[in-house]
Structures are given as structure tokens and as C-alpha cells.
């Protein structure tokens, strides 16, 4: 029998992989994919707790997370395209124009 803690441990592992990838990789596209991994980990915890507590609200929250993730990817990739047009092959370390 799979208990809720198995799903939560898997989600924690997935979130850790995503967070480490976000910190380690310097390619903006891969950093976005790591953000998607973390969002997915959170979605898994939402659905797991939603089933444990017998509350449909967990699934509704995941629906909103999906919408926000889609909007985030659309805007983020537009920024990547715009940056790439000006400075091809830029990594995240090169993009320091907004420093204070």
C-alpha cells in the first residue's frame, strides 16, 4: 500500500533536484525547466494532501498553479528570445545589466 508519505518524499526529492539545477545550471532555458520541476513537485504535494484530507480544493489549487506556470513560461521564453536577439549565447551570469 502506497501511503501519502511516499508521494511527499518523491515530491521533496523532485523539488530538491529542481532547486539544485536552478542554482547550478547557467543556461536560462534549463533554469526555466528546473522551475517547472519544482512547480510539479508542489503540484504533487497538493494532490496528495487533497486526497488525504478528502478535499477537492487541492486539485483546484493545482489548476491555478498550472495556469500561472503556463503564463510564466510564455513571458520567460519571450524574454529569452528578446535577449538572444541582442546577445547570442548569453548565459545567466552575463545578464547583469539590471544590477543595482
Amino acid at each position: 500500500m502506497v501511503t501519502a508519505s511516499w508521494y511527499l518524499i518523491l515530491a521533496a526529492g523532485l523539488f530538491t533536484i529542481g532547486a539544485v539545477g536552478l542554482l547550478v545550471r547557467r543556461n536560462p532555458l534549463i533554469m526555466f525547466m528546473c522551475v517547472e520541476l519544482m512547480l510539479n513537485a508542489v503540484n504533487l504535494t497538493f494532490i496528495t494532501f487533497g486526497r488525504e484530507l478528502n478535499d477537492i480544493g487541492g486539485q483546484v489549487s493545482v489548476f491555478f498553479v498550472l495556469v500561472v506556470a503556463a503564463a510564466e513560461v510564455v513571458v520567460g521564453l519571450a524574454i529569452v528570445v528578446a535577449i538572444n536577439r541582442r546577445r547570442p549565447q548569453a548565459t545567466a551570469d552575463d545578464l547583469s545589466a539590471l544590477r543595482g
Binding site: L10, I17, G18, G21, R25, I30, M33, L37
Partner: peptide, 10 residues
């Protein structure tokens, strides 16, 4: 599959 894919992304 999920963990292997996540490691593949990173």
C-alpha cells in the same frame, strides 16, 4: 521515471 527525467533535465 520522474526522478530519472528530473536528473536528465539537470
Amino acid at each position: 521515471i520522474v526522478l530519472a527525467g528530473a536528473l536528465g533535465v539537470v
